[in-house]
Nucleic acid binder design. Structure first.
Lengths: 210, 210
DNA sequence: AAGCTAATAGTGGAAAACCCCTATATGTCT
DNA sequence: AGACATATAGGGGTTTTCCACTATTAGCTT
């Protein structure tokens, strides 16, 4: 019996997944969580075999960060990222936090079960909408890429930039000079290896800086 | 027996909802659709009592537009909007297209059933995260607000703008001049009564132009 | 004390966006 | 035929970004 913890902030979706998994006799949903913090406490108290983790869960602690934290404390738990996005930035991040699986919310129900079985047996299951070669490359480059963690200030700048505010408006809101905003922006771009504004925005959108 | 059509582009979520509804003996899911066009054809061929319509379905035709279209062709079908967002702009739009119900994806499972029962009996069911008075105001102002519907081209421009592309990049993608892009943008701003880029972006984000 | 990071702010020039106009072609609706 | 909506594109001037630098201060760490 594979013991599963389901993490998603949308109750309806969570319940749906739970019901979907009830069809499989060797899978048992032992708990549910609605945000990152809850996911961590539930993981510790329930000690599941597999965690289904939605990426974009609210309250600061996103699915990736929660995954990292759980890995630290319980290295044997397998974690499958569950998301609507198949953007490369997401997949990269899933690889970086060493998620064992990655599936899209618009996969067929069987994929979910397959993913659970696969990661439970210790293998990797990435069902993504990009070519296999590209995926391989992302795995190879895993170690090479830096942490890419933005500072608090950079996160603020990112958020306000995604929301379409001009440098001057951002500067006004944060009581700093627009030149400082510019600097933060270019630091962010350098850190994340982004080469233009569109990539910056799309990274921000993909990572829920809104 | 209430015959229900479920519309959502995410197979996993759709299946989850279907399973959730199987618990209720007086509800029968007669069909599923993954996008707006499919929703319309399914609605016509299946003639369901209630449609559960996800707002942010892909391929141009969003849930609101699909709702409008179905209302035109089959005025007796009750439609419940299903969304992750409880932003006022969304609710406003749901009211504008005369959706009978509006529930959030992070509602409890029972809410879904309650909503179906309620709209089936001809009443309105809006379970939203805003105060009742504000909701009442939105209903009252229904007729007053303009259509505010963007043309196809304007929608494209909106989407690409939200994604952070520059005018020149957008022009390149659409094989038009950047001056034309500028014009479309300012037309959009005029139509929607937006006064700067941030408002434009945030309107776009709130309305899923991504 | 030296080194590092984060946050702040500046210069100066090139590029782009923004704003207010005008203008044309192609449709549809009445 | 005339009015209106849509999509296209340009002129010209102002403002803002973008980019590549330099620089300072505060707070850590070793």
């Amino acid at each position: 019996m594979i013991r599963v913890l389901v993490v998603d902030d949308h109750v309806l979706i969570r319940k749906g997944i739970v019901l979907l998994l009830e069809n499989y006799k060797d899978v048992q949903v032992v708990g549910e969580a609605g945000d990152g913090a809850e996911a961590i406490t539930q993981a510790i108290s329930l000690n599941p075999d597999v965690i289904l983790m939605d990426v974009s869960i609210p309250n600061g602690l996103d699915g990736f960060t929660a995954t990292q934290e759980i890995h630290k404390q319980m290295p044997n738990v397998k974690i499958i990222m569950l998301t609507m996005h198949n953007e490369v930035a997401y997949i990269q991040k899933a690889i970086a936090v060493e998620a064992h699986g990655y599936i899209l919310k618009n996969s067929q129900g069987g994929v979910l079960y397959e993913a659970i079985r696969t990661v439970y047996s210790g293998r990797i299951y990435y069902n993504v909408g990009i070519p296999q070669e590209q995926l391989n490359k992302l795995f190879e480059h895993k170690g090479h890429e830096e942490q890419c963690i933005l500072t608090v200030r950079e996160q603020e700048i990112m958020r306000l930039t995604v929301l379409g505010y001009t440098n001057v408006q951002i500067a006004g809101q944060l009581y700093i000079s627009s030149k400082t905003v510019e600097n933060h922006k270019s630091n962010i771009m350098q850190k994340l290896d982004l080469s233009n504004k569109a990539e910056l925005i799309q990274y921000g959108l993909a990572n829920n800086y809104m």
